[in-house]
Design a protein around this nucleic acid. Sequence first.
DNA 1: GCAAAAAAGTACAACGACTCTACTTAGCGA
DNA 2: TCGCTAAGTAGAGTCGTTGTACTTTTTTGC
Lengths: 207, 207
Amino acid sequence: MGSTIGYALGMTVPPVSRRDRKKAATRQAIADAALQLFLERGYDQVGIRDIADAADVSTATVFKHFSGKEALVFDQDQDRESELIAAVRQRPSGQSILDALRQHVLDTWPSIEAHPQAAEFTNLVDSTPVLRAYAERMWTRYTDSLSAAIADEIGVDHDDLACVALARFVLDIPALARGRQDRRAAVEAIFDILTHGWEPPSKPPAP
Amino acid sequence: MGSTIGYALGMTVPPVSRRDRKKAATRQAIADAALQLFLERGYDQVGIRDIADAADVSTATVFKHFSGKEALVFDQDQDRESELIAAVRQRPSGQSILDALRQHVLDTWPSIEAHPQAAEFTNLVDSTPVLRAYAERMWTRYTDSLSAAIADEIGVDHDDLACVALARFVLDIPALARGRQDRRAAVEAIFDILTHGWEPPSKPPAP
DNA sequence: GCAAAAAAGTACAACGACTCTACTTAGCGA
DNA sequence: TCGCTAAGTAGAGTCGTTGTACTTTTTTGC
């Protein structure tokens, strides 16, 4: 902490040259304008042209920085992926992969929602089908890199089925925990299934 | 078998009136034209107009029958869902839910690919990113109804987390088994994880 | 320093998926 | 047979996204 260097592998590095700084600023201006407009009017009520105007750039520039309209909402997803991989690769020696994943998920994912704007943001995503779909896909896109990390740690082939399956199941967690009152308990319960196997939940006592 | 009635719950029922028959015929004509053109030229090289022309309807009619371009490729997905639910609800007494699901998946999903045109079809989907994405989402869309069926069978609440998680994990199987040389073995391995929990796969012997 | 390469941005036209509106046609039920 | 309803059509329009050709800014090699 406090060090000016020392960025985790793969995390966004601060721009060095003037050009890179301006580029980053433009990107940020676009993302900010987009988020503000989306929160104000709703995703479907905002066009790319509105965003471009608000950020004072051309529409072509928007697409130079973002792959599509949905991506405007999820800038910074790159970091989320890097942290996940790091949690597996740099776990304390002796800790199992499953435990490392559980710990990481418990430590970081529920607390992401603790930010002040986060409630509105979550609401935006949840109430916009195309954004929910995109978010789910975003997670499962990480399946390959996470499973590769797991396989590396164990010393098996990158496309080992058990590793791919575990990665996929872990990445399902955000979708499964969405909307639960107690997210932490949900995460624990899911990891229990992954650790010990699925068993029929007990029926509630008859009234 | 051989009965002229006796359709499984939720399966497509043959149209009764002349109007319904014509409607179904139009829908089929569109789906057929679309699939043929897609297989001939590739998904991205075929426009909605081409399909409409080939089926001799207007483009507006295409969208009256299908929610979007991707849906043209996966007509009949309704039946797939119904079969899955039925496999859980109408399983032999004494069989566990997990076993019923494994059996159903082993019996039906790999054999779907046994049809003659199936190879081309699979190739079309696999080689078109937007179709792969759509197919994955199609499966996970069934999560709610499958988990509801599971929860009903056990006698717990519809949104019971363990049931939702199991449903989701099972519906991940098509994505996980895609591209494997031995799909049946893959399905078995995944159900093993779901039944007994995940364990690190053993390393191959050092060379 | 300066010229030239490289990269960011712009304006504008165009394409394709999809929607909307107003209209026609065909089946159906009384 | 008379209307009602639903299917289908024509055509214009919206919106996300891409391509082209051009300008501006920053970097780089001499």
